[in-house]
Design a protein around this nucleic acid. Structure first.
Lengths: 186, 186, 186, 186
DNA sequence: AATGAATGAGAATTCATTCAT
DNA sequence: AATGAATGAATTCTCATTCAT
């Protein structure tokens, strides 16, 4: 069965790391292959193109966020505030690499407009992000208000990730999270 | 032979349009030259490299925002609310192309990390953005609160521009602007 | 593990079909393997290279034509005209796929010059083709005339197969066959 | 205006030579560039893709045949026999390279099926080939007969070019031409 | 100033082939 | 025998950049 050096998931994880560090366009298939310890051509066993790989990376991120972050919003054993605290704390773990101290970007931002398929996957991600936040706020607020608070929160989180990277300062994200939690208390 | 077909500003304006529509990486020097009615090689009379051009585009945008948008924040003949309304309305003019109906992106988002020089220019831009908003809020709030409201506003605006493009729906931006104005009333 | 999924002949038949539909260069080893229900690597148990496979395909075609088409020329129970009619009818069965309605090409044309070994096999094929036709015409004509008629017929048949494919119209081949039969009557 | 090393026509001529010697698939863009004394990438100044180049090569051949060979069929100062003799003699000049002694193939044969655009161009070529021959035969024969003789001639010529290459013997073509001329005398 | 030709490095992708299991 | 993973060389194509005119 031949010496297996990598599997699909490893490639996706390595690609994700590179895409978040250097962006989609600044990462070559060669970079990805090297990071996996295989040759460029071998990537095409697993993914039919760089774009196919990107879509699978986006979907992996989506699923990861679903399982590790969004999920807290739906845990009905917790109060709204507890949900949101767990949510934010899990999100912070994703954006700050404790080991390297690096700040990671959100892969969607730069790639959304490259091909329509990327946008489809990215919309699905944000829809679930929005739904999770809205569900939390609905414990305290009516439909309309929860909706607005969720829209505002998603925008603010995404904007603060951008600012955090530009200024290399994670407090933008932390402050946004604090405000999201405070809003529950009013 | 020598007569001028274009000037630096025309190239910058055309580049800006393309970068906002298609992003830095998806715009080639050829695209830019074509949009200006000149040939690729001629661009190098004005800019030493694509990156040099990009920096000048960012600085142009910075200056444009300064003169057309941020400036309203410092017009002391206006009330805080009037300032902010003018500010937001001017910003909307920049992001929605009334003629084509298209939504334009924020060039900074995808290019900030390409080369350090981009980041320097982009930081300067956001610093002035932040200062303008903070100045408005300071009419009604103390230093600390104004600071926080400005940080929040900048993040929310940037996030909502991203969402507006992804979902092709400008109401994300309009709603953010509304909330920014409401905050003055509390 | 070891049980046979395919045999050499199945691979040759599948390859032949693909080579005739898509040509040698436009058919990959992967295409061939897929059409046989096995994996690419497994082909190398039967054939040492794509070229080795091609030679065996050509030789198979040669043998097939020998047994199914050329053979009628040597059946001395038949008249020359009967021989030729059977010959042509059998040939038509090979070039028109009654099920798919497709027209198949002659594999030799495009591959003759790829490697010398192909040419050797292809020459042997045409030699036998020519001999069969000449034998038929010799019943009615002298050596020299039969020779010329055979040369002419082989050229015309091959040219008409080409035209039939280009114009997707099998009547080129049918008309050529008609003329070959008419020539016996003069 | 920079040192011009090649022009479009030179590239087309060099490509034609290579395609006829080695076929479309066995000729790389690198081969073509080298034969022109330029680099691979420079070819894309003149042709947008290898296929685009191929179409222009086919169209060049078409035009060349039109001006150098088919044209004799329409020279009404000549008798039918004179037309055909000039036609055949001009054609022979194209297929035998007097300098190298090499026999050239007909580029259409192997490439007709690669992309639909090739087939369109190749059909146009054969249509004009057929029309020219038919016009000659119409001086002596009625519509129907001229039609059939033309169809037969085109097929026979193409088949004999193939045989000439396979057996490396130009007499296949010469004999076919002789027969075409003889048919006028019956 | 502008041109247009050429460059050359590098990108994605293809594919016949090898080989350990 | 068959697999499936990996190889590595080749191929098409892109694109920022240079430079003689």
């Amino acid at each position: 069965m031949a010496r297996k050096k990598v599997d699909e998931k490893t490639i996706i994880l390595n690609s994700l790391k590179l895409f978040r560090q250097k962006s989609f366009h600044n990462t070559s298939m060669e970079d990805i292959a090297t990071s996996c310890g295989i040759l460029k051509g071998s990537l095409y066993h697993y993914f039919s193109s760089k774009e196919d790989l990107m879509i699978k990376v986006i979907d992996f991120v989506h699923q990861y966020f679903q399982n590790e972050i969004f999920i807290h919003a739906w845990n009905e054993k917790l109060s709204a505030k507890q949900k949101l605290k767990k949510f934010c704390s899990a999100a912070e773990d994703v954006f700050f690499d404790k080991i390297s101290g690096k700040l990671y970007g959100n892969i969607g931002i730069e790639s959304a407009l490259v091909i329509p398929e990327f946008n489809t996957s990215i919309r699905a991600f944000f829809q679930d992000f929005f739904n999770a936040i809205k569900h939390i706020y609905k414990e305290k607020f009516n439909e309309k208000t929860a909706n607005e608070l969720a829209e505002r929160s998603v925008a603010e989180v995404e904007g603060s990730i951008m600012l955090a990277r530009i200024f290399n300062d994670k407090s933008y994200i932390i402050n946004t999270h604090k405000r999201m939690i405070e809003r529950l208390e009013k």
